[in-house]
């Protein structure tokens, strides 16, 4: 399901804030299309810092495993990456379904290590929104459906005051891969 408590604009602003604080750059210089590596100069340690900031801001757990690893786990060795560390046609089809226009430079045969440069502010925003949209119908602590927003960043149960427990990033990817495979029969 989707949720209506935290808007895409709010998530986008929070992602920009996390990036600006991590990289010590002006928030206004960041656009939706900015590549974190190519345009903003982020390195792997910065990515970790940004992801941790977003986890703390929204009370979510981002994925711990690369989607390409999940694809190989579910559809077998060689389904996502070939012997030369290049991304397969089928994996690209899947990633295009998932990221859509957020990954316009994605192409079959590209090296795995080219993927991080494709991550933009918009794709990171989408990643956070996907997790927030896993908001369960009812509170897992008290069973009531009285969600409310706190500081426009956290979702809390109006009945027992517990924060919402979202599906983690890895489980969301796995559920999504299962659904797409059933619908599209890519593998």
């Amino acid at each position: 399901m989707s949720q209506n408590f935290i808007t895409e604009a709010t998530v986008f602003e929070e992602v920009k804030k996390a990036i600006a604080e991590t990289l010590n750059i002006d928030k206004d210089s960041i656009t939706a299309e900015s590549s974190l590596i190519k345009d903003l100069g982020a390195e792997s340690l910065d990515f970790l810092d940004i992801n941790y900031r977003l986890e703390q801001a929204f009370g979510i757990k981002m994925a711990r495993h690369f989607i390409l690893e999940h694809i190989e786990e579910m559809f077998g060795e060689g389904s996502a990456i070939d012997a030369n560390s290049r991304i397969t046609d089928k994996a690209v089809s899947l990633l295009q379904f998932r990221m859509g226009e957020n990954f316009p430079e994605l192409r079959a045969g590209m090296d795995m290590d080219e993927v991080p440069a494709l991550v933009t502010v918009q794709s990171l925003t989408r990643g956070v929104l996907d997790i927030l949209d896993s908001l369960p119908e009812k509170c897992s602590a008290c069973g009531n459906s009285e969600w409310q927003s706190e500081n426009s960043l956290r979702i809390k149960c109006g009945s027992c005051q517990e924060y919402a427990a979202f599906t983690n990033g890895d489980d969301l990817i796995k559920a999504w891969l299962t659904k797409v495979q059933e619908e599209k029969k890519i593998f």
């Binding site: 992801n51 994925a63 090296d111 290590d113 993927v115 990033g169």
Partner: peptide, 11 residues
């Protein structure tokens, strides 16, 4: 040449 995931905390 593995790269890293970018969206998430890479295991």
């Amino acid at each position: 040449g593995t790269g890293f995931s970018g969206i998430g905390i890479d295991h």
